[in-house]
Design a protein around this nucleic acid. Structure first.
Lengths: 142, 142
DNA sequence: CTCTCTGCAAAATTTTTGCACTGCT
DNA sequence: AGCAGTGCAAAAATTTTGCAGAGAG
């Protein structure tokens, strides 16, 4: 998680211009835990940038992702979700309400085993769990 | 992995008709290790069913998936991939050539830990590893 | 002042849907 | 014979692209 000034510096140092839109996309991702998709980001940025287009949302994310400032999540829904937390962690999604939460577990033993068994040189890893979140469990009263 | 007759029985027992297209989609998935997407399936079935449409591919997969005969994979590509191996296993994709391989590791300890840490009631789990496959490692000669 | 970025609209992709016709049971 | 399934084309939904004008460095 970086400050606006840090993000600006990273953009500048990599030859990208620092625009309010790019900073706002990062800022939005950095200040939410909801792992939004492009549409949620677009809607969240509308009040501040009424003229902003989806193209800019996607182009901003592409750059932020290339600079390793945001991660792309893939929970199996129609659209991708995005996360400004680039530390190694896993995700868990509620199959009732759709929310996505973070999970922090040390997966290095799992990765090492996968590397040995597959013969691949592993560069990254994504783990998704699916189930029923504490709130939905309460609601269903079983 | 089921035989054609077993799949036919499962379809019939669940009120779905047994059609050559549905059996062929399952058969195609059961006899490949390449984890094809809809287009690969469509092309593979063309010789046998020149009139078959994408609609039928997707509709067949939807039913097979609902009957828990095939699994939907999400490696972060544009399209979904499908797998007739419904046993608990993980997947690893080569970031050079795009191939997807199976990996069989016991993840139950990982799942238990996730369940405790998240408070979720976990129903399923997907783990994807990304790296460079043995063949591509040889080619790059490092 | 230059050159990248934005915003718009159109394009490209993947997947879904509606409907007439076919064919399984 | 009845009704679900197929195939086609059109629709949806998400993401990408081209281009003219705006704005960052």
């Amino acid at each position: 998680m970086f400050s606006g000034m840090e993000v600006a510096k990273i953009l500048r140092d990599n030859g990208y211009k620092v625009t309010p839109q790019r900073l706002a996309v990062y800022d939005c991702l950095a200040h939410t835990k909801s792992h939004p998709n492009a549409e949620m980001l677009y809607r969240a940025l509308q009040p501040q940038f009424p003229s902003m287009s989806f193209a800019t949302v996607y182009k901003s994310i592409e750059i932020l992702n290339r600079l390793n400032l945001v991660k792309v999540l893939n929970t199996g829904e129609e659209s991708f979700r995005y996360d400004a937390d680039i530390s190694n962690h896993q995700h868990i999604q509620c199959i009732r309400c759709g929310r996505v939460d973070d999970l922090r577990m040390d997966a290095s033993a799992f990765v090492d085993k996968a590397e040995k068994e597959s013969g691949y040189e592993i560069k990254s890893e994504e783990a998704y769990f699916f189930g029923i979140c504490p709130e939905c469990r309460k609601k269903s009263a079983n």
